[in-house]
Amino acid sequence: MEKKMITLNTNQLTPFHQKIKHPLNKQRITVLQINLGRRCNLACNHCHVEASPKRTEELSPKICQQLIELINRFPQIETVDLTGGAPEMNYGFKPLVEAARNIKKEVIVRSNLTIFFETGFEDLPEYFAKNQLRVIASLPCYLEDNVDKQRGKGVYDASIRAIQKLNQLGYGNDPNLILDLVYNPPIPSNENFSLTPNQVSLEKDYQTFLKDNFDIKFDQLFTITNLPIGRVKKYLKHKKLYDSYLQFLESHYNPQTLDYVMCRNQISVDYLGNIYDCDFNQMENITATLPDGKPLTVETLLKMGNLDVINDIKTADYCYGCTAGSGSSCGGSLI
C-alpha cells in the first residue's frame, strides 16, 4: 500500500453528496424490501444488521397487516424482498410470503441456509419450493475455512447440505426455482484493501468447485462489498481502519453505477414500520422523508395512497461502498 493511503485522515474524504454533485432522485418504486427483525440463529462477523440468537426485535402483527395491505394495494410492487436477521425466524414471514405469492409477485428470501436444520424450521426447503420463492443465500466463499471464519464453525457444511436439499427439490434446474449465492469478502484486517473480484469470473469458479466437489448447481453469484456499518464498522474502528477504508472506497468511486443503485427503485421497511431508502440506511437509522421533512412509515404510505412520495434519496459516506468499482447492491455488481 502506498504511503499516502496510510497517512490520509477523515478531513480528506469528500462527502458523498458533494461527490455526486446533485441530488440522487427516487424512481418509481417496484421493490419492497422488508427487514422482519434481528432474530437469527447465527452471528456473522460481517452482518450489518448485527443479528444474533440473542436479539429479540421482530415484526409485530399490526405492522405485518399493514405490509400485507401495502402489497395488495399497489400493483407496481413487482418484488417483495424478505430479509433479517434470518427472515424465516421472525414473525410475519409466511403471511407475507403467501400474501405476495397469492397475487403473483416475486418473493425473495435472503436465507442463511443453516436455518433449515434448526428445530421447527425443517419444512422450509419444501415451503420455498411450493411457493416458488427465489432464494438468495449467503455463501461468502466456496472454501470451507473462509466461510467458517466469517460465519461460525460448521456453517459451511450445513450450507452445502442445505443447497443439496434445494437442488433435490429442483432449485438450480427449474426456471421457476431460482437459487442465487452471495459472495462477500473477508473484513480487511490491514490497509491492503481490495474491491470484490469480478462477478462473472468468480461465478465460474464457484460453479466449477461446487459442481466438482458436491454436485451442486445454482443460478447466479452476486458479489457484495462490505459496507462500513454494523459489525464491520465496529471492527474497522477497533482496528483503526475505518477512515482509510472509506477513503479507499472513495478512490474507486464510479459514477456509472449511480443509475443502477438499488435505492433508486426500492423502499426498505423495518420491523417497526419505518421507511428507508435502503437496508443500509435502515441500519444507520436514516429514515426516508417527505419533501417537508416528515419521516415516512407504512401507515403514512397507506393514508396517502401513493408509494412514490420520496423525491431525493438520503445518502451518506458509506454509499461509496455501493458505487466503488463495478458497484454493489443486494443483486450483486451493478455494471
Score class of each variant (00 low, 15 high):
residue 5 M to S: 11
residue 6 I to R: 12
residue 12 Q to M: 05
residue 12 Q to P: 08
residue 15 P to L: 03
residue 16 F to Q: 09
residue 17 H to W: 02
residue 19 K to A: 08
residue 23 P to L: 00
residue 23 P to G: 05
residue 31 V to M: 04
residue 32 L to Y: 09
residue 33 Q to W: 05
residue 34 I to F: 03
residue 39 R to L: 14
residue 42 L to H: 06
residue 44 C to D: 06
residue 47 C to A: 08
residue 49 V to R: 00
residue 49 V to L: 02
residue 54 K to H: 10
residue 55 R to D: 00
residue 55 R to K: 14
residue 58 E to N: 07
residue 59 L to H: 13
residue 59 L to I: 13
residue 64 C to Q: 14
residue 65 Q to G: 10
residue 65 Q to N: 15
residue 70 L to W: 01
residue 70 L to V: 09
residue 73 R to C: 13
residue 74 F to Y: 11
residue 75 P to N: 05
residue 76 Q to K: 13
residue 78 E to F: 09
residue 81 D to R: 10
residue 81 D to F: 04
residue 83 T to M: 13
residue 86 A to K: 07
residue 89 M to K: 10
residue 90 N to Q: 13
residue 92 G to P: 09
residue 94 K to R: 10
residue 97 V to D: 06
residue 100 A to N: 07
residue 108 I to F: 12
residue 108 I to V: 13
residue 108 I to H: 15
residue 111 S to Q: 00
residue 114 T to F: 01
residue 118 E to K: 14
residue 121 F to H: 12
residue 122 E to H: 11
residue 126 E to H: 14
residue 128 F to G: 03
residue 128 F to D: 08
residue 131 N to T: 09
residue 132 Q to I: 01
residue 142 Y to D: 04
residue 147 V to S: 06
residue 154 G to F: 12
residue 159 S to E: 12
residue 161 R to A: 00
residue 163 I to A: 02
residue 163 I to E: 09
residue 168 Q to H: 13
residue 168 Q to E: 06
residue 174 D to K: 07
residue 185 P to K: 11
residue 186 P to C: 10
residue 186 P to V: 01
residue 186 P to I: 08
residue 187 I to W: 00
residue 188 P to A: 07
residue 200 V to C: 01
residue 200 V to T: 11
residue 206 Y to L: 10
residue 207 Q to Y: 03
residue 212 D to M: 08
residue 215 D to L: 10
residue 217 K to T: 09
residue 218 F to P: 13
residue 221 L to F: 07
residue 223 T to H: 01
residue 224 I to Q: 07
residue 226 N to L: 06
residue 227 L to G: 00
residue 227 L to Q: 15
residue 239 K to W: 03
residue 241 L to Q: 03
residue 242 Y to S: 01
residue 243 D to K: 02
residue 244 S to P: 02
residue 246 L to D: 00
residue 254 N to K: 09
residue 257 T to E: 01
residue 259 D to Q: 11
residue 262 M to L: 04
residue 265 N to A: 07
residue 270 D to E: 10
residue 270 D to Y: 06
residue 272 L to Y: 15
residue 276 Y to T: 03
residue 279 D to G: 04
residue 283 M to Q: 08
residue 285 N to R: 14
residue 288 A to L: 11
residue 290 L to N: 04
residue 290 L to P: 10
residue 291 P to W: 12
residue 291 P to H: 15
residue 301 L to Q: 09
residue 303 K to D: 11
residue 304 M to G: 12
residue 308 D to R: 08
residue 309 V to T: 03
residue 312 D to F: 08
residue 316 A to M: 09
residue 320 Y to G: 04
residue 326 S to Q: 13
residue 326 S to H: 10
residue 327 G to R: 10
residue 329 S to I: 05
residue 330 C to M: 06
residue 334 L to F: 00
